[in-house]
């Protein structure tokens, strides 16, 4: 009775470590695929379209809404201290340092990461990857690597667009609705945001999140069980693991480098 529990625990630990090893190997293979010829430029453009362009609307709308909420909440708090003119720096810094990269990563995980896992999972289930192998095309090279690369490329761009939309949303609420001086809003932004700390940190964060989401979604799809339940498990797993990891890694980056 007791022994079986210990055996189960040990089995799970070993399985977990093997999965980590498998994941690391997969990451290495992905990286190798990106630097070996032929470069799949056409595939990359297609993936940038599916991941980036198709996520654009949701990212911009969310960014605008978040910026508007920040404007409203910030105004309520700041007006107590008579410091409404700090609204610009409040909205800008919050968006650039935290909310922009993190919320974009979460949105893209839900919008594109899950789709990647489902697509590759379905290809596994219908033996399309084996079909590619039969034609001596490496499926990692052809299917997974462009998706992961496109994720890394588009994440900073989407994050920057999210931030700009958010700053616009904050401007609409703060200046148009609540009557803050537009000059002080923009001056607060310009005065508080530093390129070396804030903007670079923001880009670094979204690059790291792009790597995370890209690797996890392709890995989960690639290793999914070849049936309907496997595809659904891969999709769910991608969203859960990538979202939680994004938040944890965000804390680690902030704690270590203070961006």
């Amino acid at each position: 009775m007791f022994r079986s529990h210990v055996e189960k625990l040990g089995g799970r630990t070993i399985a977990g470590i093997s999965r980590l090893g498998q994941f690391t190997t997969f990451a290495g293979v992905l990286l190798d695929c990106l630097i070996t010829r032929p470069f799949r430029g056409r595939r990359l453009i297609d993936e940038v379209y599916t991941i980036g362009v198709l996520s654009l609307v949701i990212v911009c709308i969310s960014g605008g809404a978040v910026g508007m909420v920040l404007g409203l909440q910030g105004y309520t708090v700041l007006t107590r201290f008579g410091a409404e003119e700090a609204l610009g720096s409040f909205v800008g810094l919050t968006l650039i340092r935290e909310l922009g990269p993190v919320l974009t990563a979460l949105l893209v995980t839900g919008r594109a990461g899950s789709a990647i896992a489902a697509e590759i999972g379905a290809m596994v289930a219908t033996e399309q990857l084996d079909g590619l192998r039969m034609m001596s095309i490496d499926p990692t090279h052809y299917v997974a690597a462009p998706k992961a690369a496109a994720m890394v490329l588009t994440m900073p761009l989407l994050s920057a667009l999210f931030i700009v939309c958010g700053i616009g949303g904050g401007y609409v609420v703060g200046v148009q609705f609540l009557g803050i001086d537009p000059g002080s809003y923009l001056k607060g932004l310009e005065g508080s945001i530093k390129f070396s700390d804030d903007v670079m940190g923001s880009i670094t964060k979204s690059l790291v999140f792009g790597i995370l989401v890209g690797m996890i979604s392709t890995y989960r799809g690639y290793t999914s069980a070849p049936n309907a339940a496997g595809v659904s498990a891969a999709t769910t797993g991608t969203v859960v693991v990538a979202s939680v990891l994004t938040l944890i890694v965000d804390y680690i980056i902030t704690a270590l480098w203070g961006v």
Binding site: I45, V48, Y49, G52, V53, L56, G92, I96, T154, P156, L157, L158, A160, L161, I163, V164, I167, L189, E190, I193, K194, F195, D198, V199, S202, I203
Partner: peptide, 23 residues
């Protein structure tokens, strides 16, 4: 469309860096 998206993204980064970030 992809080209336009990339241009828009880099414009946003440039705006954040140059206009707001003081680069």
């Amino acid at each position: 469309i992809v080209g336009l998206f990339v241009i828009a993204g880099f414009t946003a980064i440039a705006y954040l860096s140059v206009s707001l970030g003081g680069l």
